[in-house]
Write a protein that binds this DNA or RNA. Structure first.
Lengths: 192, 192
DNA sequence: TGTACATCAGTGAACGCGCGTTCACTGATGTAC
DNA sequence: TGTACATCAGTGAACGCGCGTTCACTGATGTAC
């Protein structure tokens, strides 16, 4: 059967969205194309009308996840009182909801170690949007240009590491402690 | 053929050592038992004389990696002039050699996201030695007991996150920049 | 002291399963004439 | 205006491969008698 003009694009977006959740939750190796498509009421064969390979989808899913993150940051900044933007960013990242919601959480916290294992060439397209994201955070850090960038990447990668460790914790209270400790630490250190 | 008394224990250790390197380099899904054993001039069948399952080995490999890390920290502390232990720890972690040597590097930086995906019960044995490690770092942080622990876990998880991001970078100079920025940041923030 | 038997680390074939990818096919709609 | 053909998102069987795990077997050494 032939589908309306916009149909293909919509299907692609549905696949990317679902994949972005799945990859973050289970990792690349843990997320099977067949399962993904079945959940969308599609069959696995159709997948290759939209993507060249699983790796192709992985990139699209990572980009989608980063876009979500950037939107979250932008919203937090918009809601923040002038001068408190950076605190808002840290609060949006280091909280229990974000920690518990890996499926829709920061793709860097969920997938960076897998990214690091890919060959150099394969990493380039992942890094471009990642750097854009970091640049946006840098805007709200005091200091000169170079200083802001350095602090932004330290803050961002540090928060991602903390989120990952917090997710490995078993006890909910401990998880909260880890997140709160880092929150205070960064607000204190970067805001200075 | 029957082997000398100590032989089995030695073989087990060889497997754990090789696995600890392989898991960190390639992740759990990327490291196959067959390849691992072949590299050790053994056959895959023999593996199950030493371990119940791949997961069993994964735990042993993680513990081994953490032991390596703790030894490195202990050595850095021993070499450090009194009062500079914390700086020594940060310098030992956030440097290009550690960054380039994922196979023998911090297992938390390499494997924490995989750990976080395991079911709660499966995580407990991984967390025990991890907490010991963090407690050791806490010894060299100024402040009261609770404060030290909080700062130690923030520092450690933050550095692990930074190391992971640095490993994803393509440009060597950029990698160095990321590591140096974090080094300065943490020395400044924690030493205070 | 010598002999028969038990032990068990290691071997390698085999099993079963999951997964990424391919491919011939479907059939409703758009298009050319 | 009507008809024949092209298009192409989606289907589902099939392929090929890798991998974790099992299992019957090997054979040198330790042990019981």
């Amino acid at each position: 059967m032939r589908y309306p003009a916009e149909h293909k694009q919509q299907t692609r977006e549905r696949i990317v969205k679902a994949a972005a959740r799945r990859f973050r939750s289970r990792g690349s190796a843990g997320a099977a194309i067949g399962d993904l498509m079945r959940d969308l009421r599609l069959t696995h064969g159709g997948f290759y009308r939209h993507f060249d390979s699983k790796e192709d989808l992985f990139l699209a899913a990572f980009e989608h996840g980063l876009k979500q993150s950037r939107r979250r940051v932008a919203e937090a900044v918009a809601r923040a009182a002038p001068g408190t933007e950076l605190q808002a960013i840290v609060n949006t990242y280091l909280n229990v909801e974000h920690c518990d919601d890996i499926a829709d959480g920061c793709p860097v916290a969920a997938l960076a170690s897998e990214l690091a294992r890919r060959p150099r060439v394969a990493r380039a397209p992942f890094l471009r949007p990642l750097k854009d994201h970091i640049r946006e955070i840098a805007r709200f850090i005091p200091g000169n240009e170079a200083d802001r960038t350095r602090k932004a990447i330290t803050l961002f990668s540090g928060m991602a590491g903390t989120l990952t460790i917090a997710r490995a914790m078993i006890d909910d209270q401990e998880r909260r402690m880890v997140l709160d400790a880092a929150k205070r630490f960064y607000l204190d250190a970067v805001g200075r």
